[in-house]
Amino acid sequence: MIANAPFFVVGLLFLGGLTAIFMEKNLVKIAIAISVISSSVNLFLVALGYRVGGTVPIHFLAGEGTRMVLPTPQAMTLTAIVIALATTALLLSLIMLVHRHYGTLDIDEIRRLRG
């Protein structure tokens, strides 16, 4: 149980982001919460590939014959980070357009204005 502490930290981070998405009223704060969730997923992927006593998967830095962590989750995390960045840029652009259209970022206000 306690040995799985990194996974629990990731789960708590995920739940914190999800709670912020449900509870917050400001669109920018919701975007920040989505970023927190994607960061927690990236952390989870990297933590899944860890092996006890493993070093970086680079022969040049690790030396010969050492035990290495799994490289594939790290490569996939690299892809996921860039995709999260592109998603965040698109999200912020949409939020800018919403603010220009409605003049506010409060989601209750936006729903009321839409009638």
């Binding site: 840029a89 912020l92 800018m96």
Partner: peptide, 20 residues
Amino acid sequence: EVTGALSLIILTMHRGIRMF
């Protein structure tokens, strides 16, 4: 490719702020 894309995203979003 990433240099061009990210620089263009930053420039476009900043121009969007000015436009708006």
